[in-house]
Simulated scan of single mutants.
Amino acid sequence: MADICVIGGTRFFGKLLVRRLLDDGHRVTVVNRGRAPDTFGDSVRRLRADLSVPGELAAAVAGERFDAVVHQMCYSPVTAVEAVEAFGERAGKYVLTSSMEVYNADTFRWKIPAPPMSAFAREKELDPAAYAYDTALPWHDPDFAGPNYGEGKRQAEAALTALAEVPVVLARVAHVVAAEDDFTERYGFHVDRVRAGRPIVAHARPGRTSLVHAPDAASFLAFAATTDITGAVNVASPDAADVYDVCAAVESALGLVPQVIEKEDAPGDPDLSPFSCPADFGMATDRAAALGHRCAPVSQWLPALARTVADQEGN
């Protein structure tokens, strides 16, 4: 049994992570602002901290010691530095929930040109130890942080790697798809449009991308927190998918044929599929498999998820 601290944990796959840790018999402390309800009852400890307020995290965890800290809310080097300062050596390891967006060559802002990336990138193609970070940038400004999400995650990885006094895992998570509590609404986007007979726009000759089922993302984070693995790890289903694969799953669930329109000028179109890419953009999953964690193939879970989402959207 381990003492695990989850920063965040009240929405999307963070809730599944907490539930997975509890089911496995671990003691869980959740750190968040305390504004979102949860269903954990007395099974978790709760500490309150608003990460946008300097010093609140450090005050909340003062004197606490954990076997691992899973940071679901680290979007910038500022947040990473504050976490390191708050926990010091009192965290057995850090698990940072990062993103596939760290590999997106179009989002590199302060390293021009971007380093070369494979269409399905491997972890070694982006070394956080060799990447610079800048805490003086206005990371707390949503108008800055939002458009620079990928850069924020890269710099968070770099800061944590450079400063942490304990082992670090960087979980580079693919597009997460969930049947419930998916605030991104990426999958519901397709269900809604097909049901309404509205077109779905795609890039001309759309590429494939990496997806991961929410339970698998949560399972990996729990695995990372409770084993001795370290370093960057891509978290994704081993098979990629494109917008047509997503639409085929929706068609099987609704019995309605999606209308997909490919456009050369697709960016900015309000009907552009969130899963459409102008070229292949995803991640290789060899390292995760070698470490002992395999996510289920998209072909196994996407059709069933489509039926669940369709049923929920119809109610």
Rank of each mutant, 00 (worst) to 15 (best):
I4T: 09
I4L: 07
I7V: 15
L16T: 00
L21T: 02
G25R: 01
G25L: 03
G25V: 00
H26W: 13
T29H: 02
R35C: 03
A59L: 12
A59G: 15
V61W: 14
A62K: 15
V70K: 08
H71M: 11
S76A: 11
E82K: 08
R90N: 15
Y94S: 08
L96G: 07
S98F: 05
E101D: 14
F108M: 06
R109A: 15
W110T: 11
K111P: 00
K111V: 14
I112W: 12
P113V: 09
S118T: 13
S118E: 10
K124C: 09
L126A: 01
D127P: 06
P128R: 10
A129M: 06
A130Y: 09
A130T: 10
D134T: 11
D134H: 10
L137E: 04
H140P: 00
F144T: 02
N148Y: 11
G150M: 04
G150Y: 05
A162Q: 04
A164T: 04
V169A: 08
R172V: 04
R172K: 14
H175W: 14
E185L: 11
E185N: 14
F189Q: 07
R195V: 08
R198I: 02
P199K: 14
V201R: 11
P206S: 04
D216Q: 11
A218G: 10
A218C: 05
S219H: 02
A225E: 04
D228N: 13
I229E: 02
A232S: 15
V235P: 00
V235S: 03
S237L: 07
P238D: 04
D242H: 06
A249M: 07
S252F: 00
S252G: 15
A253Q: 05
A253F: 07
L254E: 09
V257K: 15
I261F: 06
E262M: 06
P267I: 08
C277Y: 07
A279M: 10
D280P: 10
F281E: 02
A290M: 06
A290N: 03
S299A: 15
L305R: 09
A306C: 12
R307Q: 14
R307T: 14
T308S: 14
Q312C: 00
G314P: 00
